[in-house]
Design a protein around this nucleic acid. Structure first.
Length: 593
RNA sequence: GGAACCGUGGUGUAGUCGGUUAACACGCCAGCCUGUCACGCUGGAGAUCGCGGGUUCGAGUCCCGUCGGUUCCGCCA
């Protein structure tokens, strides 16, 4: 055989190719051996084509009989229109088949631990251990191809709009605030550590100070926190920063990017994307990343129940809130189903879940109405636009508890009531975030976004007097209850940055030790700038409607952050630790491995 | 750190109230078959039921522990 392994990709052959001599290469999928006639589904990245072996060449036929699943072969043959009635409409190549004239086995294969060409669930342990085989399956290949095309679309967009793709260090310095860092010990400086970047935040700001004006990077980031279905310890960001821009400039540029990216998946994004304030998102949807595909909004009834005979309501109304969701059509749910909702509400921090079920003709089923006055009940029903068959669910508590619990309940109700259309994409920007949040545990304010986020100029003076009231020039992009990314206009004046660190409770010495280089950089003429970062993996997950981020990451880790294929993380040789000046605590020896 | 669910031939599952030979489908192996495409038919191999302990005359099944996987809470500027 010469150097030409293949003339065509399996999945690309069509009726128009009939009559052509082709050479194909790929993996043996299903084989259908009829004794006197053998069919092989030959698979490569492009798809599948049927190869036919006929018995007129006994030597060739014998070789075909020995083929097994996942053998890698090269086949020479003639593309042939299938016999009348033998077409397979399920295959893109179903109108033709390739009649084999020559066959070379390039690699034999052991029987794989799971069937490659059979869709369906396989234990994720097995899939991850044999990830290279899992990635051979068409479903995962589709996700990888989508991932590539999204990255390509993004790069094209950035290039067209004057952005430079610039790299930032992977070995950098650990900074306070934010997620737990992955640390890398330094051999040259025993006892000192690099940190892997949680994001290239400071570096991209420094690019702006450098006058590079528009930066982007598709870059790996690391956070040593516990995993979730949509969270991996290393993940990929589409990271962006722009000079001489305000909030609107960044948002407008980025929604064009999002439009371009989602177009890759055939999803239309109408511009401009609607904007909703953080406050409104919390009050109406109980979430800072609301799913706008359905209603079930939170309704405030605090004023109505202020003097309620139902003490739970009256007490909460004093210094908290009483809010409700009208689960339309849910009055028929069983007591057991409602009790399950109550259990969940309690798990999320509520003390309980009060409810009123509206029956035919307006009759009420409830454990709380007997404590409430007639007109109070009537006012609540009216406020919630209650109709027969509706189930009203109430939470009375501190505002944060009310919003968290009802916000989560809202999503559960939306799913249970079948209100969520998986094909719809409802985007929104969440804006006007608080700059700071009070952290009761630490007894200080912490940055809601990050310490470099610019306060709204009109709130600057509140930084010292009422820090909790300062709003930030920050924005998150949300789709269907998923946070795709977030960013902000940054602080570009060293004095403001110093005030921010002070508001965060840093002493001037601390601020200088940790971030002196940034403050110094800002003092050399920093342009106003701002940016954003999107979670690429989540973008793919949403576009491909995946349940897990792992299905769009080539080599993901398990929930316990292990790589089941390579066995990472692993022990290292004592000499390696010695070299780094590291000794393990007894509790760290012979632990999980 | 906490909660829940799961772990049975290679894969996916069943296995009742604890009962004697652990079932089914796919895959695998062999044979037959010239138009299949989830090919078909016949036969076969393949499991100490994640691991350890306990209760019991008897444990895949009940209990305790442990390991692993998943989902969620905390955490994730």
């Amino acid at each position: 055989m010469d150097e030409l392994w293949r003339s065509d990709a399996c999945g690309t052959l069509r009726l128009a190719d009939a009559g052509r001599e082709v050479r194909l290469a790929g993996w043996v999928g299903r084989r259908r051996d009829h004794g006197g006639l053998i069919f092989i589904d030959l698979r490569d990245r492009s798809g599948v084509v049927q190869i036919v072996f006929q018995p007129d060449d006994p030597e060739l036929f014998a070789k075909a009989e020995a083929l097994r699943g996942e053998y890698v072969i090269s086949v020479k043959g003639k593309v042939t229109k299938r016999l009348e009635g033998m077409e397979n409409p399920k295959l893109a190549t179903g109108e033709i088949e390739v009649v084999a004239e020559d066959l070379v086995v390039l690699s034999e294969a052991k029987t794989p631990p799971f069937q490659i060409d059979r869709p369906g669930d396989v234990d994720e342990r097995i899939r991850l251990r044999y990830r290279y085989l899992d990635l051979r399956r068409p479903a995962l290949q589709r996700n990888m191809i989508l991932r590539h095309r999204v990255m390509k679309a993004a790069r094209d967009f950035f290039d067209e709009n004057g952005f430079l793709e610039l790299e930032t260090p992977m070995l950098t310095r650990s900074t306070p605030e934010g997620a737990r860092d992955y640390l890398v010990p330094s051999r040259v400086h025993p006892g000192k550590f690099y940190a892997l970047p949680q994001s290239p935040q400071i570096f991209k700001q420094l690019f702006m100070v450098s006058g590079l004006e528009r930066y982007y990077q598709i870059v790996r980031c690391f956070r040593d926190e516990d995993l979730r279905a949509d969270r991996q310890p290393e993940f990929t960001q589409i990271d962006v920063e722009m000079s001489f821009v305000g909030r609107d400039d960044v948002m407008r540029m980025m929604e064009r990017l999002i439009q371009r990216i989602f177009a890759v998946g055939g999803i239309d994004v109408n511009l401009p994307i609607r904007r909703i304030s953080y406050k409104e998102a919390i009050e109406r949807y109980g979430s800072d990343k609301p799913d706008l595909r359905f209603g079930l909004e939170l309704v405030d009834v605090t004023d109505i129940v202020r003097d309620s005979g139902f003490k739970v309501f009256a007490d909460a109304a004093k210094d908290g809130l009483v809010k409700a969701i009208n689960a339309k059509g849910a009055a028929r749910w069983s007591r057991r189903e409602i009790d399950q909702l109550t259990e969940q509400a309690i798990e999320w921090g509520a003390k309980g879940l009060a409810w009123i079920a509206v029956g035919e003709g307006g009759s009420l089923r409830s454990a709380i109405t007997k404590f409430m006055a007639e007109e109070e009940i009537a006012a609540v029903l009216e406020r919630l636009a209650a109709e027969p068959d509706d189930l009203l669910l109430f939470v009375a508590d501190r505002p944060d508890v009310v919003h968290t619990v009802l916000g989560r309940l809202r999503v559960v109700l939306g799913e249970k009531l079948g209100l969520i259309d998986p094909e719809r994409y409802e985007f929104c920007w969440v804006i006007d975030w608080p700059l700071l949040e009070w952290d009761a545990e630490q007894g200080r304010y912490v940055a809601a976004h990050h310490p470099f986020t610019s306060p709204k100029p009109e709130h600057l003076e509140l930084l010292e007097t009422d820090p909790g009231a300062v709003e930030a020039l920050a924005y998150d992009l949300v789709v269907n209850g998923v946070e795709l990314g977030g960013g902000s206009i940054r602080i570009h004046r060293p004095d403001v940055q110093e005030r921010m660190f002070k508001a965060l409770g840093f002493t001037p010495e601390e601020a200088h030790e940790k971030f002196g280089f940034l403050i110094e950089a800002l003092s050399y003429g920093a342009p106003p700038h701002g940016g954003i970062a999107f979670g690429l993996d989540r973008v793919i997950m949403v576009m491909a409607r995946l349940d897990s981020i792992r299905d769009c990451i080539p080599f993901p880790k398990t929930q316990s952050a292990m790589d089941l294929m390579t066995g990472a993380p692993s022990d290292v040789a004592p000499e390696q630790l010695e070299e780094l000046g590291i000794r393990l605590l007894p509790s760290a020896r012979g632990g999980k491995s």
